[in-house]
């Protein structure tokens, strides 16, 4: 691996830009790769936990990608999964502790799901598929791109679920301000239940595929 080309690549070459922007749309971790669904269902009932979860995943994924990418030439292939897990676990514990220290309420709400970032398929998937074979900088960008791809789906889903399920946006009772409870409007209890998260993600996938025809598989 020491025979890497000496040619200097600009920091944001076309290739590197792709690493960031592809995961936002046509290579989205949730809607296209269908990874990390479990946490997308669990934490999207309200916006606040969804945002915090997104930030946590962003931190863990981008740092883990860089660390693994730095270590990639020294990791023996047979134990690589264990090594990746150790790195992720260490980062997740860090994030968990930070949350407990500075955002205790949200940390309570997220409960086990912060710990379960370890098993978030996006992270393992990116480490295995990208960081193990690429240099630190592209790996970092890949981590960022995928976390943003994950984050925006989470936030969109959480936005609709909180708006229709609890009648608020980020904790602010918007529906009450609009005064539509007075005319018989009621919150939709189904939106708070996990199946609606799945259905909302499904709708996003539907919209995305009908706008982006190269995502439709031939069969």
């Amino acid at each position: 691996m020491s025979t890497e080309s000496k040619q200097k690549e600009p920091l944001f070459s076309a290739k590197n830009k792709k690493l960031i922007f592809n995961p936002l749309s046509k290579d989205n971790p949730i809607t296209v790769q269908v990874l990390g669904i479990c946490s997308a269902l669990a934490v999207t009932a309200k916006l606040e936990p969804a945002v915090v979860m997104s930030i946590s995943v962003l931190a863990v994924l981008s740092i883990a990608n860089v660390v693994i990418s730095l270590l990639r030439n020294t990791i023996p292939p047979r134990i690589r999964i264990i090594v990746q897990l150790v790195v992720i676990a260490a980062l997740v514990i860090l994030v968990d502790q930070v949350l407990k220290a500075f955002a205790y309420d949200v940390s309570k709400q997220l409960s086990v799901f912060v710990g379960l970032i370890i098993t978030n398929c996006i992270i393992m998937g990116r480490l295995e598929a990208f960081a193990m074979g690429n240099k630190p900088w592209p790996s970092f960008l890949d981590g960022l791109g995928n976390s943003f791809g994950y984050a925006w789906i989470l936030i969109v889903v959480a936005f609709f679920r909180e708006l229709f399920g609890s009648g608020s946006i980020y904790g602010y009772p918007v529906m009450e301000w609009l005064g539509i409870y007075g005319v018989g409007y009621k919150n939709n209890g189904m939106m708070i239940l996990p199946p609606m998260a799945l259905i909302t993600v499904g709708i996003i996938i539907w919209v995305q595929r009908s706008r982006n025809s190269d995502l439709i598989e031939e069969n």
């Binding site: 009621k186 939709n188 209890g189 189904m190 939106m191 239940l193």
Partner: peptide
Amino acid sequence: AFLFFAYPQD
């Protein structure tokens, strides 16, 4: 089913 789970009080 949607009505039942979304608006149980009704």
